[in-house]
Simulated scan of single mutants.
Amino acid sequence: MIPEHETFDGTWPFPARYCEAAGFRQHYVDEGPRRGGETLVLLHGEPTWGYLWRHLVGPLSRQHRVVVPDHMGFGKSDTPPGRGYLADEHVDNLEQLLVGELDLHGITLVLHDWGGPIGTGFALRHPDRVSRILATNTVLPLGLPGYAELMQHNFADSSWFRWARAAHADGTLEVLLGNAGHTITHLMLALQTITRPQILTPTWVRAYSAHFTGRAQCRGVIRFPQQLVAPDPDAPAPAPPDPAAVAALRGKPALLVQGMRDTALLPRYTVPAFRLGYHSAPVVELPQAGHFTPEDAPETLLALLDLFLQTT
């Protein structure tokens, strides 16, 4: 866990807040006015934390309330033992924070990577609390026909998943991810793709590696890919989402901002997957951005989010 007051040379100046409603110490930031603006929840994925959104939090919070949680096992949140670190458990944790602790309504979800499935899981439980969704280099699993096939094709073609499958097969996946403090730059730059390597300063590397001080602190970063390449054969199949909740979410304004040089979630599959749920919603393609659009194109993403808020 990253220390509470760590700012990484002033690049993460936001006061830390903590919630223990889910049985562990979950970090989040909560910036901006409580009245008069929108409420935005920004969700990170693998292997990042709230730091991913650092370029957006300050500008957005001048007019809007901005909540940025760290998932269990990432950033300034605890990595408790004895947890499964599966997607549904992260949804449970998010529900405890956004509903039980903060009681948020009128939420604009801004979702990246695993933040997409986690945020979608939350939205399906509480469609009445969600106003709109901006997805960037992620997927929104709504249980619609054709989605599973697109994800299977991505799983077969993606550089990230090909590596993860091979590493699991030869027994090195847990070793490499269990040393994420040392391997994170390679994971993000090469396997998922960052198109602006000049941003990889010593401060940047320290910010993304600081949580992963040992194997015990890497449970979260190991389990995200592991649940896909090595699913538990005895685990019960997930229940299909409530059709009424799916219909309610499909009626919300949505926007996909797609970094086209993503080598983990390939645009030729993720864009059609988004279209399954949102036939006429806008899709903005960023030709020079990779998987991490908040790193490769933060100004563009901020402008698109501002326009999305103004026009929906």
Rank of each mutant, 00 (worst) to 15 (best):
I118D: 04
G100V: 10
T48I: 11
T79F: 04
W53P: 01
G32T: 01
L150I: 11
D78Q: 12
G146L: 06
V99M: 10
E101S: 13
P145Y: 12
G37Y: 03
V67C: 12
L97G: 00
D92N: 13
N93G: 14
G100D: 10
A87I: 15
N137F: 04
E89P: 01
H27T: 11
P15H: 06
P141D: 12
T11S: 12
V67K: 10
L124D: 07
Q26A: 05
G58W: 00
E20Q: 14
G82T: 02
R62I: 01
M151F: 14
L40T: 02
L97R: 06
E101T: 13
R129A: 05
R65H: 09
G45L: 07
V130L: 00
V130G: 01
T48W: 04
E149D: 15
L140W: 09
Y85L: 03
I133R: 03
P141I: 08
Y18N: 03
L42I: 14
R62W: 05
Y18L: 04
L104S: 11
N93T: 11
Y85I: 01
G75M: 09
L134Y: 05
E20I: 04
T120L: 00
V139C: 05
L144G: 03
R34K: 15
G75V: 03
L111S: 13
G36T: 04
E101M: 08
L60E: 09
F24Q: 00
T39L: 12
T48F: 08
P15N: 00
E89D: 14
W12K: 07
E46M: 15
L98A: 12
R129F: 00
Y51L: 10
T120H: 05
D30I: 13
R17D: 12
R35C: 10
C19L: 09
Y147Q: 15
C19A: 14
L42G: 08
V57C: 04
E46G: 10
H44D: 07
G58H: 04
G143H: 02
G116N: 03
Q96S: 14
V57D: 02
D103L: 07
T138K: 11
L98R: 02
M72V: 13
E46R: 11
A135I: 00
V130P: 05
D103A: 11
R35M: 13
L102Q: 09
V29D: 03
G116W: 01
D78M: 10
R65W: 13
I118Q: 02
G106C: 08
Y51W: 14
L86R: 12
A87E: 07
F24L: 05
T108M: 10
G73V: 06
A21L: 14
V41N: 05
E31N: 07
E46H: 15
L60S: 09
V67F: 10
M72W: 04
F14Y: 08
H105E: 15
G37N: 09
R83H: 13
V91C: 07
L134E: 02
